[in-house]
Nucleic acid binder design. Structure first.
Lengths: 243, 243
DNA sequence: CGCCCTATTGAATATAATCAACCGCCGTGG
DNA sequence: CCACGGCGGTTGATTATATTCAATAGGGCG
């Protein structure tokens, strides 16, 4: 167990007893199948792919991480998002004939498949019109809008800082250290997601390290100055010194 | 009636008998209130604003157009989208305590307010789990993802071309001419939406006019070469000649 | 061990931002 | 009615930022 591993074991964390979505999952799985259908996806494998017929399931990520890919007009696939627990996958395919994006595991991962019409029925049974699935979908829209905001009128440095903070928040939300974690994605994935080139990402990392905002060797990140990172992400604190 | 006006009158087009969302609206309005509560929003007024308590309604745009604003980290509001019929507004606030964005009318507009829990109940009554509201929300997620794609790895010219094509498609979908329409938004709004400066938008328009892709005087647009526009939007056809 | 893929670094170039001036339209008010 | 002022839009010159092309370094995996 190295310094980047969790305080608890991975198996522990991915158990259903710790799942924040347990109420939903529990109520939507057939009684004899609870805790729902667990699916293991190994690194580089895809949970679903663009063009595939959309099943009527959504996926609750229990461990690991995914990148979401979409075909750009030119043909190549761009990263349109990353997904870590406690996110869902497949929400965007609801009611569609086929998937428009692909979900590729960045590391060996586990998801619980939930039938969405059961999930819908679940919300229905709840008293007082508990939002349930609708709220989940609406939240996803807001998340996308927020992400799109980051791509407008921001410099590459801001986007990079924002990504690091976002990953930090994810890890913290899962009970891991907020300032010390492993990036599951490659530099290329980051570049594609941020809408810049891989070279640019590399230079930004070097710059941030010179400024002691974080250390990042290989894929092991240590955030050193969260307030400064937030300042870069929010206001435009451009390159600053570069000595 | 000038050359940019519709073949039919505006009143005709905004009547419920022509509404593509009529089945939903009809089934969700109280019998005595059909065709639902019509709301008139005048130019520059907002249908809802960020921070306001979110009502439990969604809005079916019947005529006019809106821009969606969101507060950027620096404080100023950025345009995160435009909405023309037959789009809905307010989907992203479903289940949220308050609105995260603002919807501002770009011209005098009309919407039909639909109670979302009635809309949800509507989908529920339908046989075979007709997707209904869920599908609407999921489609919105896909739309956002697609829009976000445009902001990554694209040059300003591609974005501008894509916007013009997108507006063209909207107008065509509403039964108007696809190559001749009035832009409801200012250059600043366009710039904010595309994530570039207003100066850049101005230069792009000038460039496109020199290349005879379209004419755009004031806010009246005439698309002259749709295939070329699509080429610019898709592949990167950079500045090309600039004589 | 060696290859390949990912990542890094450098130099030159392209693109859009910034700063600044100017124009034209529109509404206001004299 | 016309003059004024302001806003939205355009254009130019300069600068900042990121891309592109190219070369190199480092790890992981066979």
């Amino acid at each position: 167990m190295n310094e980047f591993s969790a305080r608890d074991s991975a198996a522990d964390r991915s158990s259903c007893s710790r799942c924040v979505h347990r109420p939903l999952c529990q109520d939507t799985a057939p009684a004899d199948q609870y805790p729902g259908r667990r699916i293991r996806i190994e690194r580089r494998a895809s949970l679903y792919q663009a063009g595939e017929q959309a099943g009527e399931r959504i996926y609750n990520i229990r461990s690991g991480s995914f990148k979401l890919l979409r075909a750009a007009p030119r043909g190549e696939a761009l990263v349109v998002g990353f997904a870590l627990p406690p996110a869902f996958l497949g929400l965007n395919a609801l009611g569609a004939a086929q998937h428009e994006d692909s979900a590729v595991a960045l590391e060996d991962s586990e998801v619980c498949a939930i039938s969405w019409h059961r999930a819908a029925a679940h919300g229905r049974r709840e008293p007082l019109m508990r939002p349930g699935l609708h709220a989940l979908l609406a939240r996803e829209i807001r998340r996308e809008q927020r992400a799109a905001l980051m791509l407008r009128n921001t410099h590459a440095a801001q986007r990079m800082a924002e990504l690091m903070l976002s990953l930090s928040r994810c890890h913290a939300a899962n009970g891991y250290a907020a300032t010390r974690f492993r990036l599951p994605m490659s530099r290329c994935d980051i570049a594609s997601y941020l809408g810049v080139t891989a070279e640019c990402v590399s230079r930004l990392i070097a710059l941030f390290e010179r400024q002691s905002l974080f250390e990042l060797s290989r894929r092991d990140a240590t955030l050193l100055d969260l307030p400064a990172l937030q300042r870069v992400a929010a206001g435009h604190t451009p390159a600053e010194v570069q000595a």
